[in-house]
Amino acid sequence: MIPFNKPFIIGKELKYIEEAVKSGKISGDGIFTKKCQDFFQDRYRFPKVLLTTSCTDALEMAAILCDVKAGDEVIVPSYTFVSSANAFALRGAMLVFADSCSDNPNIDPKEIERLITDRTKVIVPVHYAGVACDMEAIMKLADKYNLFVVEDAAQAIDSYYTFSDGTKKALGAIGHFAAFSFHETKNIIAGEGGMLVVNDAKYFERAEIIREKGTNRSAFFRGEVNKYGWVDIGSSFLPSEIISAFLYGQLEHMDEIQSKRITIWNRYYEELQILTEKGYVDLPVIPDYATNNAHMFYLICRSCEERTKLIEFMKEQDIHPVFHYLSLNKSEYFLKDNAKIDILNSDHFTDRLLRLPFYYELAYDDQEKIIEMVKKFYSVF
């Protein structure tokens, strides 16, 4: 069987876990947590990084830091994972769903401006498949209307955006805050795990407090206060040292991981391009301002029915591709209190997008079989 995803060990992950246990500290904010945070701050010039137990937790921290309250409006793409919206719904926000671009699943900046009102507080661009949203356009809107931008960069590690003046920045370094994931389906994994990036120094201290259950415990351990107590709202967002140790073992091999994934992505694209030329499917679009971190490879089928048949055909060959999100505007939770609405591009990707198996240890022969079977389905050889 060729699964959709397969977790992997590439370096000293298990050795570092053993070291963490032997150190006598496997709760949060130990030596491996610091090593990981330093790695990201040094490599991507993120001003402040805080590891979390998940990307969801990082988004929830960002919602608190944005001071989102009941009645505030938050603009999120309809085509995204529930955490992108749920983090703000938990603060009482009214969710305003924006459509995707016509040629890729990322949020359309033109849709964002149309949806802004005097109650809008936050824009949440989601960098789908690790490909940058149009951050220059989005930041201009944020500046114009005095809004927060929280980048959902769950899939976007090691991906960049190039501004019109030639300036290049890592995704996550552009908005006010950003959230990343190290779930086992991501490029760099820790099973579960995430991180919050804070790009404005005035939020550094409060971010630490929120992450430490609303206490100033971090300042206490640095010797900045002589005791610590409850000073704000917060929760327990720290990952254990076991998660951080595994993650650090992966980070030491990031370039190797990324190189292999890009090779896999490019092979899919080159081999399946014939299907686009014949009008059977659309392949991923990488805008000029974006880089490709090879997080996933997907096809856009001609219909939902065709996608279903392709999935069934592939499973008969012991290959397991998967579809992705249900548009949040069509979700059971949203429809409890809201009328059914169509968001055309989002619904298009919901019905037709199909992700092919993609993981670091995907063997050449297995990828060859996947490509061959997709071509066979469309009778293209």
Rank of each mutant, 00 (worst) to 15 (best):
K6H: 02
K6L: 10
G11E: 05
K25Q: 02
G28E: 11
D29W: 14
C36V: 11
Q37E: 15
D38V: 06
R43T: 15
K48V: 07
L50A: 05
T52C: 13
A58Y: 02
C66H: 10
D67C: 13
D67M: 00
V68G: 07
E73P: 07
T80N: 14
S83Q: 14
A85D: 03
A87T: 03
A93T: 03
M94N: 10
L95D: 10
C101M: 03
N104V: 10
E111W: 03
R114F: 02
R114C: 09
A129V: 11
V131A: 01
M135N: 10
L141C: 02
A142Y: 00
A142W: 00
F148L: 13
D152G: 06
A153R: 04
Q155W: 04
Q155G: 10
Q155D: 15
I157N: 07
D158N: 01
Y161C: 07
T162L: 00
F163Y: 00
F163Q: 08
S164K: 05
G166A: 02
G172W: 00
A178D: 09
S181L: 11
F182Y: 01
E184M: 09
L196A: 06
D200M: 07
Y203H: 13
Y203D: 08
F204L: 12
R206L: 14
N216Q: 08
S218R: 13
A219N: 01
A219F: 14
N226D: 09
G229W: 00
L238N: 08
P239M: 05
I243W: 01
S244C: 09
L247Q: 09
Q250S: 04
Q250H: 11
H253I: 13
D255M: 04
D255W: 07
Q258P: 05
R261D: 14
T263S: 13
Y268T: 09
Q273K: 15
Q273T: 12
G279D: 02
Y280Q: 07
D282I: 09
P287S: 08
M296E: 15
S303W: 06
E306D: 12
H324Q: 05
Y325N: 13
L326Q: 13
S327T: 07
K330Y: 05
Y333R: 15
K336A: 08
A339I: 09
L344Q: 10
N345D: 09
T350N: 08
T350F: 04
R352S: 11
R355W: 06
F358R: 01
E361L: 05
Y364V: 06
Y364T: 02
E372S: 12
E372N: 06
K375I: 07
K376C: 14
F377D: 15
